[in-house]
Protein backbone atom coordinates (compact mmCIF):
# COMPACT_ATOMS: atom_id res chain seq x y z
CA UNK A 1 0.00 0.00 0.00
CA UNK A 2 1.20 3.47 -0.79
CA UNK A 3 0.74 6.63 1.07
CA UNK A 4 -2.50 8.33 0.02
CA UNK A 5 -1.21 11.83 0.71
CA UNK A 6 1.88 11.05 -1.27
CA UNK A 7 -0.30 9.92 -4.17
CA UNK A 8 -2.32 13.10 -4.31
CA UNK A 9 0.76 15.27 -4.08
CA UNK A 10 2.26 13.34 -6.96
CA UNK A 11 -0.98 13.53 -8.91
CA UNK A 12 -1.10 17.28 -8.52
CA UNK A 13 2.59 17.59 -9.30
CA UNK A 14 2.20 15.71 -12.58
CA UNK A 15 -1.24 16.52 -13.95
CA UNK A 16 -1.24 20.29 -13.38
CA UNK A 17 2.12 21.01 -15.04
CA UNK A 18 1.24 18.50 -17.76
CA UNK A 19 -1.77 20.63 -18.65
CA UNK A 20 0.63 23.38 -19.66
CA UNK A 21 1.38 21.19 -22.65
CA UNK A 22 -2.05 22.14 -23.86
CA UNK A 23 -2.39 25.71 -22.72
CA UNK A 24 1.00 27.41 -22.38
CA UNK A 25 2.01 29.72 -25.19
CA UNK A 26 5.73 29.68 -24.81
CA UNK A 27 7.67 26.53 -25.46
CA UNK A 28 10.13 27.36 -22.67
CA UNK A 29 7.31 27.42 -20.13
CA UNK A 30 6.14 24.08 -21.39
CA UNK A 31 9.62 22.63 -21.11
CA UNK A 32 9.98 23.83 -17.54
CA UNK A 33 6.56 22.37 -16.67
CA UNK A 34 7.52 19.04 -18.15
CA UNK A 35 10.63 19.08 -15.95
CA UNK A 36 8.25 19.32 -13.02
CA UNK A 37 6.21 16.43 -14.37
CA UNK A 38 9.37 14.35 -14.63
CA UNK A 39 10.28 15.15 -11.03
CA UNK A 40 6.78 14.15 -9.99
CA UNK A 41 7.11 10.88 -11.88
CA UNK A 42 10.45 10.24 -10.18
CA UNK A 43 8.71 10.71 -6.89
CA UNK A 44 6.03 8.28 -7.98
CA UNK A 45 8.66 5.67 -8.85
CA UNK A 46 10.25 6.03 -5.46
CA UNK A 47 6.81 5.68 -3.88
CA UNK A 48 6.22 2.55 -5.90
CA UNK A 49 9.39 1.06 -4.41
CA UNK A 50 11.54 1.69 -7.45
CA UNK A 51 14.09 4.10 -6.00
CA UNK A 52 16.78 3.37 -8.58
CA UNK A 53 14.44 4.04 -11.47
CA UNK A 54 13.36 7.24 -9.78
CA UNK A 55 16.93 8.44 -9.64
CA UNK A 56 17.52 7.43 -13.24
CA UNK A 57 14.36 9.29 -14.18
CA UNK A 58 15.64 12.48 -12.64
CA UNK A 59 19.08 12.11 -14.14
CA UNK A 60 17.93 11.12 -17.62
CA UNK A 61 14.83 13.25 -17.99
CA UNK A 62 15.26 16.36 -15.97
CA UNK A 63 19.02 16.32 -16.33
CA UNK A 64 19.52 15.24 -19.94
CA UNK A 65 16.41 15.02 -22.08
CA UNK A 66 14.70 18.19 -20.97
CA UNK A 67 17.95 20.13 -21.06
CA UNK A 68 18.38 18.89 -24.62
CA UNK A 69 14.91 20.22 -25.36
CA UNK A 70 15.88 23.58 -23.94
CA UNK A 71 19.06 23.66 -26.02
CA UNK A 72 17.05 22.96 -29.16
CA UNK A 73 14.56 25.63 -28.17
CA UNK A 74 17.40 28.11 -27.90
CA UNK A 75 18.80 26.95 -31.24
CA UNK A 76 15.57 27.39 -33.15
CA UNK A 77 14.78 30.61 -31.36
CA UNK A 78 12.89 31.33 -28.23
CA UNK A 79 10.82 33.73 -30.30
CA UNK A 80 8.99 30.90 -32.05
CA UNK A 81 5.74 32.01 -30.57
CA UNK A 82 2.86 29.80 -31.37
CA UNK A 83 -0.51 31.06 -32.40
CA UNK A 84 -2.92 28.90 -30.49
CA UNK A 85 -5.62 29.54 -33.06
CA UNK A 86 -6.41 26.27 -34.79
CA UNK A 87 -5.75 26.15 -38.54
CA UNK A 88 -7.08 22.74 -39.46
CA UNK A 89 -10.84 22.68 -39.50
CA UNK A 90 -12.30 20.51 -36.73
CA UNK A 91 -8.87 19.39 -35.53
CA UNK A 92 -9.25 21.00 -32.13
CA UNK A 93 -12.58 19.55 -31.13
CA UNK A 94 -12.12 16.16 -32.68
CA UNK A 95 -8.62 16.01 -31.19
CA UNK A 96 -9.81 16.96 -27.75
CA UNK A 97 -12.68 14.53 -28.00
CA UNK A 98 -10.41 11.72 -29.18
CA UNK A 99 -7.84 12.34 -26.44
CA UNK A 100 -10.51 12.66 -23.79
CA UNK A 101 -12.21 9.55 -25.08
CA UNK A 102 -8.92 7.70 -25.00
CA UNK A 103 -8.31 8.74 -21.40
CA UNK A 104 -11.87 7.94 -20.40
CA UNK A 105 -11.68 4.52 -21.97
CA UNK A 106 -8.38 3.68 -20.32
CA UNK A 107 -9.65 4.84 -16.93
CA UNK A 108 -12.93 2.98 -17.24
CA UNK A 109 -11.18 -0.21 -18.32
CA UNK A 110 -8.73 -0.02 -15.47
CA UNK A 111 -11.62 0.62 -13.13
CA UNK A 112 -13.38 -2.46 -14.34
CA UNK A 113 -10.56 -4.94 -13.98
CA UNK A 114 -9.34 -6.37 -10.75
CA UNK A 115 -5.61 -6.73 -10.55
CA UNK A 116 -3.73 -8.71 -7.93
CA UNK A 117 -1.97 -6.77 -5.29
CA UNK A 118 1.15 -8.50 -4.07
CA UNK A 119 2.03 -8.25 -0.44
CA UNK A 120 5.72 -8.47 -1.18
CA UNK A 121 7.32 -5.33 -2.39
CA UNK A 122 9.69 -5.60 -5.31
CA UNK A 123 13.16 -4.66 -4.44
CA UNK A 124 13.98 -1.69 -6.61
CA UNK A 125 17.38 -0.96 -5.22
CA UNK A 126 20.37 -0.68 -7.59
CA UNK A 127 21.68 -4.09 -6.67
CA UNK A 128 18.48 -5.94 -7.56
CA UNK A 129 18.05 -3.92 -10.74
CA UNK A 130 21.65 -4.55 -11.73
CA UNK A 131 21.27 -8.29 -11.22
CA UNK A 132 18.11 -8.34 -13.32
CA UNK A 133 19.58 -6.14 -16.07
CA UNK A 134 22.89 -7.87 -16.50
CA UNK A 135 21.68 -11.35 -15.87
CA UNK A 136 18.32 -12.10 -17.36
CA UNK A 137 18.11 -9.10 -19.66
CA UNK A 138 21.75 -8.80 -20.66
CA UNK A 139 21.04 -9.38 -24.34
CA UNK A 140 18.41 -6.66 -24.33
CA UNK A 141 20.85 -4.30 -22.72
CA UNK A 142 23.37 -4.99 -25.43
CA UNK A 143 20.79 -4.42 -28.15
CA UNK A 144 19.84 -1.17 -26.43
CA UNK A 145 23.48 -0.21 -26.54
CA UNK A 146 23.38 -0.58 -30.31
CA UNK A 147 20.21 1.46 -30.43
CA UNK A 148 21.82 4.28 -28.51
CA UNK A 149 24.93 4.25 -30.70
CA UNK A 150 22.79 4.29 -33.81
CA UNK A 151 20.76 7.16 -32.41
CA UNK A 152 23.93 9.09 -31.65
CA UNK A 153 25.26 8.55 -35.15
CA UNK A 154 21.85 9.42 -36.57
CA UNK A 155 21.76 12.68 -34.66
CA UNK A 156 25.23 13.51 -35.97
CA UNK A 157 24.17 12.78 -39.54
CA UNK A 158 20.98 14.78 -39.21
CA UNK A 159 22.55 17.87 -37.76
CA UNK A 160 25.73 17.79 -39.79
CA UNK A 161 25.97 20.38 -42.57
CA UNK A 162 28.70 19.63 -45.04
CA UNK A 163 30.74 22.62 -46.13
CA UNK A 164 30.15 22.94 -49.84
CA UNK A 165 32.52 25.82 -50.55
CA UNK A 166 35.70 26.96 -48.81
CA UNK A 167 35.40 29.22 -45.82
CA UNK A 168 35.43 32.90 -46.74
CA UNK A 169 38.50 34.83 -45.81
CA UNK A 170 38.27 38.21 -44.17
CA UNK A 171 39.27 39.84 -47.46
CA UNK A 172 36.43 38.18 -49.32
CA UNK A 173 33.94 39.09 -46.66
CA UNK A 174 34.95 42.69 -46.90
CA UNK A 175 34.80 42.67 -50.71
CA UNK A 176 31.32 41.20 -50.65
CA UNK A 177 30.22 43.83 -48.23
CA UNK A 178 31.51 46.65 -50.46
CA UNK A 179 30.00 45.05 -53.55
CA UNK A 180 26.47 45.10 -52.15
CA UNK A 181 26.88 48.74 -51.14
CA UNK A 182 26.90 48.27 -47.40
CA UNK A 183 29.00 50.43 -45.09
CA UNK A 184 32.62 49.61 -45.70
CA UNK A 185 33.37 50.45 -42.11
CA UNK A 186 31.73 49.48 -38.89
CA UNK A 187 28.38 50.90 -38.06
CA UNK A 188 28.50 53.77 -35.61
CA UNK A 189 28.16 52.79 -32.01
CA UNK A 190 24.96 53.79 -30.23
CA UNK A 191 25.08 56.51 -27.69
CA UNK A 192 28.15 58.06 -29.21
CA UNK A 193 27.83 61.79 -29.89
CA UNK A 194 24.78 61.74 -27.70
CA UNK A 195 24.29 63.15 -24.33
CA UNK A 196 23.07 59.82 -23.12
CA UNK A 197 26.02 57.53 -23.10
CA UNK A 198 23.73 54.47 -23.38
CA UNK A 199 23.12 51.50 -25.68
CA UNK A 200 19.45 52.27 -26.18
CA UNK A 201 20.00 55.68 -27.68
CA UNK A 202 20.89 56.09 -31.38
CA UNK A 203 24.02 57.87 -32.43
CA UNK A 204 23.73 61.30 -34.07
CA UNK A 205 25.19 62.14 -37.45
CA UNK A 206 27.04 65.43 -38.00
CA UNK A 207 23.74 67.16 -38.73
CA UNK A 208 22.35 66.05 -35.44
CA UNK A 209 19.91 63.46 -36.92
CA UNK A 210 19.58 60.15 -35.09
CA UNK A 211 21.12 57.16 -36.91
CA UNK A 212 18.46 54.50 -36.40
CA UNK A 213 20.53 51.43 -37.24
CA UNK A 214 23.19 52.24 -34.72
CA UNK A 215 20.99 50.73 -32.04
CA UNK A 216 21.10 46.96 -31.50
CA UNK A 217 18.39 45.11 -33.41
CA UNK A 218 17.62 42.98 -30.40
CA UNK A 219 16.67 46.07 -28.39
CA UNK A 220 14.44 47.24 -31.22
CA UNK A 221 12.61 43.91 -31.24
CA UNK A 222 12.10 44.19 -27.53
CA UNK A 223 10.90 47.80 -27.93
CA UNK A 224 13.53 48.90 -25.46
CA UNK A 225 15.03 51.77 -27.49
CA UNK A 226 14.65 55.47 -27.06
CA UNK A 227 14.05 55.76 -30.83
CA UNK A 228 15.70 59.18 -30.74
CA UNK A 229 12.32 60.85 -30.44
CA UNK A 230 13.59 63.72 -28.40
CA UNK A 231 16.34 64.53 -30.92
CA UNK A 232 13.92 64.44 -33.81
CA UNK A 233 11.60 66.76 -31.91
CA UNK A 234 14.50 69.10 -31.36
CA UNK A 235 15.33 69.10 -35.04
CA UNK A 236 11.75 69.78 -36.06
CA UNK A 237 11.35 72.58 -33.58
CA UNK A 238 14.40 74.89 -33.84
CA UNK A 239 13.05 77.14 -31.05
CA UNK A 240 13.73 74.43 -28.58
CA UNK A 241 17.43 74.70 -28.01
CA UNK A 242 19.31 72.16 -26.10
CA UNK A 243 20.19 74.64 -23.47
CA UNK A 244 16.50 75.32 -22.73
CA UNK A 245 16.01 72.11 -21.00
Amino acid sequence: MVNTVMFWIIAALTVIPALSLLFARKAVHVAMSVVLVMVGLAAAYVTLSAPFLGMVQIVVYTGAVMMLFLFVLMLVGVDQREDLKETIKGQRWIGLLAAAGLGAFLVSIIGRVTLPTADTMPSGDPEAVAIALFDRYVLVIEVLGFVLITAAVGALVLTHTPRLRPRKTQLEVQRDRVRVGADPVNKPMPGVYARHNALDVPALDPEGKPIEHSVSRVLEIRHQTQEGAEFRAALEDPSRKEGDR
Partner: peptide, 25 residues
Amino acid sequence: NFVILASILFAIGAAAVLLRRNAII
Protein backbone atom coordinates in the same frame (compact mmCIF):
# COMPACT_ATOMS: atom_id res chain seq x y z
CA ASN B 1 -4.56 4.66 -8.84
CA PHE B 2 -1.14 5.26 -10.36
CA VAL B 3 -2.30 3.40 -13.41
CA ILE B 4 -5.28 5.70 -13.63
CA LEU B 5 -2.95 8.67 -13.20
CA ALA B 6 -0.82 7.23 -16.00
CA SER B 7 -3.90 7.02 -18.22
CA ILE B 8 -4.72 10.67 -17.61
CA LEU B 9 -1.16 11.73 -18.34
CA PHE B 10 -1.23 9.61 -21.48
CA ALA B 11 -4.40 11.33 -22.65
CA ILE B 12 -2.89 14.77 -21.95
CA GLY B 13 0.21 13.82 -23.94
CA ALA B 14 -1.92 12.58 -26.85
CA ALA B 15 -3.95 15.78 -26.78
CA ALA B 16 -0.72 17.80 -26.89
CA VAL B 17 0.44 15.89 -29.95
CA LEU B 18 -2.88 16.44 -31.64
CA LEU B 19 -3.40 20.08 -30.79
CA ARG B 20 -0.03 21.82 -30.66
CA ARG B 21 1.60 23.04 -33.84
CA ASN B 22 5.00 23.66 -32.31
CA ALA B 23 6.99 20.55 -33.13
CA ILE B 24 8.98 20.71 -29.91
CA ILE B 25 5.87 20.91 -27.75
